[in-house]
Simulated assay, not measured.
Amino acid sequence: MRPLTLWRYEMLRAGWAALLGPPIAVAVGVAAALANPVPGDATTARILLGALEMAVPLAAGVACASLVGRDPAIELQLTAPTSYRVTLLRRMAVTLAWTAAVAALTAAVLIVTGWWARWPANHGPLAGQLTWLAPTLGLSGLGFAAGAVFRSPAAAGALVTTLWAIQQFFAGSAQEHLPGRLLYLFATTRGTVPGDWAANRLTLLGAAAVLTVLALVLLGRSERLVKEEDE
Rank of each mutant, 00 (worst) to 15 (best):
V68T: 10
V102G: 00
L34N: 13
Y84D: 03
A42D: 15
L219A: 00
A174Q: 07
G124V: 01
L219E: 01
L34F: 10
V210S: 02
R190W: 15
E229R: 07
V94S: 01
M54R: 15
A80V: 08
R13F: 06
T188N: 10
K227I: 06
V210I: 14
A165E: 01
T113N: 06
G195M: 09
D41V: 12
I166R: 00
G141K: 07
L216C: 07
A127D: 02
A18R: 04
S222F: 01
W119Y: 15
L6W: 08
I74P: 09
L6C: 04
L211N: 06
V217Y: 00
C64L: 13
A108E: 14
G40I: 11
A107C: 13
A59P: 11
R201D: 10
L78W: 08
W115Y: 13
A32V: 05
L204G: 13
V217A: 12
A199Y: 14
A134P: 07
W132L: 02
V62S: 14
L159A: 14
L58I: 10
Y84W: 11
L4A: 15
A45Q: 03
T95I: 01
R201F: 01
M92D: 11
R151N: 12
P179E: 01
I74L: 15
A198I: 13
L19G: 06
A165R: 03
A121T: 02
A127T: 13
L204P: 10
E231G: 12
T189V: 14
A97H: 13
F150P: 04
A107F: 05
D71C: 05
P194N: 11
I47E: 04
A107S: 15
L163K: 01
G141Q: 09
Q129D: 12
V217G: 09
